[in-house]
Amino acid sequence: MVTSRRDFLKQAGWTVLGGGLMASFVELPASKAHASSGDRTHLYAYVVDTHKCIGCGKCGEACRAENKVPDEFYRTWIERYTIYADGHVDVDSPHGGEKGATPIKKAHIDRSFFVPKLCNHCKEPNCVQVCPVGATYVSRQGVVLVDEKHCVGCGYCIQACPYGARFINPKTHVADKCTWCYHRVLKGLKPACVTVCPVGARQFGKVNDPNDPVGKLIKEARLQVLKPEMGNQPMVFYNGLDKEVR
């Protein structure tokens, strides 16, 4: 009697638990998914030419206005690297480089250059991998986005991003980052930073379009990505990356 009751209980328990879990997590994709979304492709790429950048900061200013980025946080920024003859490396980015750059009053500079940074919209983004609630994701077009209505603001994605591209927005209290101006791109515009760049150091386009200058560059130029050892496969490519850039 006792054993049969327990067996029954055990079975009932497993059925409810198992059934519930199955219905919720396994069946959910089938019942609730929008199958029409189709497969994800990485439509776009971004190319930064460090040889062209003049460090004027117009990109950062435009990004802030376009995306209402709160003060002291950055969806994009410009770093300046200065390598001295004695091997010393100096990196600075005052105000994210948004207010332009001032000359350096020191001699013996071997080389110096600007490196604009932004979210890399990786093919294998570990920020998305670590989101516990499905609040950050890769859109159909391959753009890494944050759902500010679902994000709990735990900050795990910020810790996971090797590039420092994410932050907690002090107004919305959720993770915030560059969206490649998703709202502009889908309207056929370029991201705001690309639009205002006066020297063409920032370019944005379609990967597989042979008529697109960016598509052509990615095919033909010898470009690098930041921290390739992370295995994130960035979709922001750099021309003229120095070994000192991380």
Binding site: E72, F73, Y74, W77, E79, D90, V91, D92, S93, G96, K117, G155, I158, Q159, Y163, G164, A165, R166, F167, I168
Partner: peptide, 11 residues
């Protein structure tokens, strides 16, 4: 040098 979003400790 720190990336500009890293100045404030989050956790």
């Amino acid at each position: 040098f720190l990336f500009p979003n890293e100045i404030e400790v989050l956790w």
